[in-house]
Design a protein around this nucleic acid. Structure first.
Lengths: 229, 229
DNA sequence: ACACAAAATTGATAATTATCAATAATTATT
DNA sequence: AATAATTATTGATAATTATCAATTTTGTGT
């Protein structure tokens, strides 16, 4: 799978994405006006800080997480192009309730919250598409919460692998951009446990591992482990 | 605080609530048309089942949770009148990703998903209010996830008490309708732990306990414990 | 008020997962 | 290509929380 596309091709894809959401040419211009680049590891937004922007990921990969004061993170979403980040801040208490970090070099369009809000209020089709995203975000969060809160470590890791494969990369291959630590944070476990459980899954022929790349060989097995709890 | 109101007063409050969301008189009639009563402990919706309805809680109290196959539940929300349940099912895969149960006798208005969707598409003010609810739901879920995934038991219980006091009952008093088990499910812990931790908090004079009623005496202390992780 | 059922409580123990420490492998930098 | 820095891996141990069993308290229905 291609993780990186040249800029012009990427621009076109972004515009296509926004068109499908029902934005007009001028609205597209507005929301793609400000583009910021983030290096791997940089914070895209910081939990607790004032939420000025809604963001659109144009290029690269991000992870979104909740963090406690001891900097233990739980990742609830891996974000691929083209996705909108920060919808939960559109209304409410105006602060980010999560943090977001680039897991590789990424480009993000910043849209002022008020601008985004104006478009929603005047563009019905767009509002409707945004509501779909909210629905999906909630469903994803329920699934993550269920995995992290109600299951044991093997099932949690299987859930993370299924999530990455089916929802994010849409491939049997989970590329090296995802580290053991990312999987740990996604599963709510310590990194050392991930290593051990991946070794078990490899031994059971459910996955193969080549350096940091993970290939899912037996999705049914992962799903059985996931269900077992 | 009053948990139960006579029917006529309640009808008026429900209509007021819906008016504030921007619904017209005829729309209000549509969404309050079908009213169902649930006994304490009854399922209002079942995780995994087909999502036909969006629901409006008219009277009583509900808890929403994610459940695994061994019936271990994690509660992520206590619902009071007047709240909308099931917005996450408005689009997406058409199944409930959570379960919902009455924790006391409750009355719920059922609104067909398609009907709800139609109103959103035609009523801008309502759509905007619904988006606010989505934002709040996401923010609440991030907070719950952070508590359940990143903290230790004392902090988790404090978070649950703070949530119940500030967001749900808007009072220092957490009434007996909330059981030890509810707090356990809300905190992602076993009931026995809740008993022990409540005893600790009582000993520290952070709360007082009279049978099932919990009174918060020192909210600052709870918040310090919550932050500590 | 009585009997039954449900919920809360307490103590003891087991299971699970995190942490720590040390090393190996991989990736990034000069 | 060499070196530094990060990430992955392994084993041993500690900490946390769940589970189990027994008892008490509280709530419900007749």
């Amino acid at each position: 799978m291609k993780i990186f596309s040249p800029d012009d091709e990427n621009n076109k894809k972004l515009v296509d994405f926004l068109k499908k959401l029902g934005l007009s040419a001028s609205e597209i211009k507005t929301v793609t006006n400000t583009e910021i680049e983030f290096k791997k590891g940089e914070n895209v937004c910081k939990q607790g800080s004032f939420a000025s922007y809604i963001m659109i990921l144009k290029e690269g990969w991000l992870k979104s997480f909740v963090e406690n004061i001891h900097f233990k993170n739980t990742v609830f979403k891996i974000t691929k192009p083209f996705s909108i980040i920060g919808l939960s801040c559109l209304y409410g208490d105006n602060h980010y309730h999560f943090g977001c970090q680039a897991i590789m070099q990424s480009k993000v369009c910043l849209v002022e919250r008020t601008v985004f809000d104006d478009i929603i209020r005047t563009n019905n089709k767009f509002a409707s598409e945004i509501i779909k995203m909210y629905s999906n975000s909630l469903q994803n969060l329920y699934d993550r919460l269920n995995s992290i809160s109600n299951k044991q470590s093997l099932s949690k890791v299987c859930d993370s692998l299924i999530y990455l494969s089916e929802k994010i990369f849409e491939s049997d291959v989970i590329p090296p951009v995802i580290t053991r630590r990312d999987i740990a944070e996604l599963s709510g476990l310590a990194t050392e446990n991930i290593v051990r459980i991946l070794a078990e899954l490899k031994f059971a022929n459910a996955i193969s591992v080549d350096r940091k790349e993970i290939i899912i060989l037996d999705m049914d097995m992962l799903k059985r482990f996931s269900c077992f709890g």
